[in-house]
Simulated scan of single mutants.
Amino acid sequence: MVNVYDHAHSLARALKESHEYRSFVAAREKIKGKASAEKMIEDFHKRQLELQAQVLQGKELTQEQKEGLERLYSVLSQDVDIRDYLMAEQRLGTLLNDVYKIISDAVDVELPRAK
C-alpha cells in the first residue's frame, strides 16, 4: 500500500530544492530588513487581494482599478530587489498552482474558477 504522507514529504523536499523556491528565498533575503521595500510589497499584496476578492464576488474590475494596479507594479519594479522578489514569488506561485492542479486532476477534484 502506498503511503501518501511519505510521497507528500518527498514532494515537499523536492519543492524546497527547486530553482523556483531557492530563487524566492534568495530574493526574499535581499529585501528582508528593508522596511520601505517590505511595506511597499505588503501594500501591493493587500491591493491585489482586495481586487481578487472583488472578482470572486462576481464584480468586474474597472479599467481604472486595473491600471492602478499596473502603475503600482511599475513603480515597485523600479527597485531591482523588489522586482526580483515579485518575479520569484510569481514563479513559485505558478509552480505551486501547477502541482495543485496535477494533484486535483489525479483525484478528479475541480478547482474553483474565478469568473
Rank of each mutant, 00 (worst) to 15 (best):
K46P: 01
F44M: 12
V25D: 05
L15E: 03
Q54S: 08
L86Q: 04
M40T: 07
E67Y: 07
K46S: 12
Y85S: 06
A106V: 14
M1P: 13
Q48I: 08
M40S: 02
L76K: 06
I103K: 01
L92S: 03
M1L: 08
H9A: 14
E17V: 15
A35Q: 13
S77L: 09
A37T: 01
Q63T: 08
R28Q: 10
Q65S: 10
L11E: 07
V25F: 14
S36N: 07
R47A: 02
Y21V: 03
M1T: 08
Y21L: 11
A14W: 08
V99K: 06
L15I: 12
S23V: 13
D43Y: 01
G33L: 06
E42I: 00
A37N: 09
L49K: 12
A8Y: 06
S74D: 09
L92W: 03
E64S: 06
G58F: 09
G68K: 01
T94F: 10
Q63G: 04
E17M: 15
A27E: 02
S74K: 03
L61W: 07
H45Q: 04
S23I: 09
D84A: 06
Q48D: 02
R83Y: 01
K39C: 03
E29Q: 07
R91K: 11
V55Y: 00
Y100R: 02
V75E: 11
A35H: 12
I103S: 10
V107W: 01
E110S: 08
H7L: 15
V107N: 05
V80E: 13
Q52I: 05
K16H: 13
G93N: 11
L92P: 02
A114I: 11
E64H: 06
